[in-house]
Design a protein around this nucleic acid. Sequence first.
DNA 1: ATGAAAGCGCTAACAT
DNA 2: ATGTTAGCGCTTTCAT
Lengths: 337, 337
Amino acid sequence: MTPTRKSPRHAQPAAGPTMADLARLAGVSAITVSRALAGSPLVNPETATRIKAIAEAQGYTFNVSARNLRLRSNRTVAVIVEMKPSPDRRMSDPYPLDLLGGISQELASAGYCVLLSTRAGGDVAAVRGADAVILLGQGAHEDAVAAVARWRLPMVVWGAPLPGAAQVTVGSDNRRGGALAAERFLALGRHRIGFLGDTAHAEVAARLAGFEAVLSAHGLKAAHAKPAAFTVAAGAKASHALLERHPQADALFAASDLLAIGAVRALTERGRRVPEDVSVIGYDDTPLAATYVPALSSVHQNLHEGGVLLARKALALVEGREVASETLPTNLVVRAT
Amino acid sequence: MTPTRKSPRHAQPAAGPTMADLARLAGVSAITVSRALAGSPLVNPETATRIKAIAEAQGYTFNVSARNLRLRSNRTVAVIVEMKPSPDRRMSDPYPLDLLGGISQELASAGYCVLLSTRAGGDVAAVRGADAVILLGQGAHEDAVAAVARWRLPMVVWGAPLPGAAQVTVGSDNRRGGALAAERFLALGRHRIGFLGDTAHAEVAARLAGFEAVLSAHGLKAAHAKPAAFTVAAGAKASHALLERHPQADALFAASDLLAIGAVRALTERGRRVPEDVSVIGYDDTPLAATYVPALSSVHQNLHEGGVLLARKALALVEGREVASETLPTNLVVRAT
DNA sequence: ATGAAAGCGCTAACAT
DNA sequence: ATGTTAGCGCTTTCAT
């Protein structure tokens, strides 16, 4: 009646060896194996070496789920990327990947995993089970933030800090980025200045705020145009609209490099030369900006470092430490335009 | 002596409710809760609805680790990206993100998770515990493939199929891409043709093979130059070297758009006009190519679809199904160059 | 320095 | 349609 050995009630594809198996082979108990593999100082170094050798020889793989269940932690951070993977709206901004690089590096070195998902993936159990969420991009009117906040997980957001909001934000200094662009235009003697960007995005709003602050200090105002998307075509269209109203514009600041390229295209189509007649500054300093002809001036943000910072704050949140929002420095890379 | 209730031996931060808690509240057993939440047809619809309501009200979150432990499967696929996240070598190719979009979408809809990692992350336990690996990029001389293959997990590789190799590969038709470029050059009446790319990468080798096959059918040979990296600067440098040897070249095919832009730059520096004197074709059809001036002709590959396919094959491997390598169609997007 | 016992939360098998 | 039993592989007490 007493259950003697493993009664194979579950017809499973017999997996690799467990710690118990290794223990049997090494003539020790499972807990010693656990300690040895975890590098605990409690085990005799010789025993530990022997156990590790056996583990290696047996092709042992650690069962993460078992540990996670026992420890009630998943050592996993979900990263939510705003991706609309449709053929027409390609993810042309390479910025998420740079951020991901930083995040991945930092989390990996802390022994955490990066679980990649989109907003739609929020109902996947594993995402909800993550120890924290990193949200890349707040979305228009912070809708993404609101959606993910409902998951009630520790959350860090890449974007612009919002006055009223409680969540932790990491982002480049968008205000300063905008201010730098304005200062550059003023230094060039430009006075008929336009802005291209959808302020429904908090980052863009901050860029505009910094931009306008400098201009208004000099008694100037900026004309706005709101592109429908972050694409070259939308940038060109919005620029045309703006130039229709302000044909004498001599400087345009765009909220992204793609929009800036659209602006250059629209200006060229209208027979206005860049940079002779009109200065253009973009944002993000993507490879696009550097290689474009004319080489595009652009506001640079260190995305890799941003990723590292996002990861660190997420981990701090998991550990219950106090965490504050942080802003990364931005700088203007002056090129031909 | 009989263990009556939960003896709280483990001082853990009391997590949310478990299925047992919900069962108690609903006046059913845990297994019924399990079945109800899993949408099993075995439970009375009314009971199921009631249980779901209670779960919702209690803020229940499913414990993935427990299920994974029980089911001996992690429902997770690791995606290995070749990222060297250093400031000088930015990840400028946006292609991994498009692939990731497709992968993520497909895996999520199958209830699987995407675990993002780099080659260095191979010792993270969670990665080794994944049900399969998707490797993005084979690496020079397939070193990445060799490294990841050692993990002995079901693996699918994005790249070019190799004659001798056993692993499953998904990639665009690199040979055909090369052939299309060659045909275009011939149609333009070009005969002094050069190729820019490092054939240590199998994809590049395949592009060159297709390219040369068409040329040699017309009794032509291509001059080679091997850029040190996939950057504009390396492309320009390699182009200069090639043009030093073949100053009369009238067409250049580059293994990536960035290299192609480097080539245009080098040509311009040498006083040769593009496309009047020299035709240039790139590869990948990145936004870079479309927005560059002159607009760059480039070989297009559908990366989103590639990602979907990678994911499907990975899942098929997990399920023990037969899986074959696959090649996606490529087409040439003719622009100004 | 090592071990015994217990249980993390879930679900497959076998009842009823 | 619902319940009982058992156990996935690991690690934290509390012994020795």
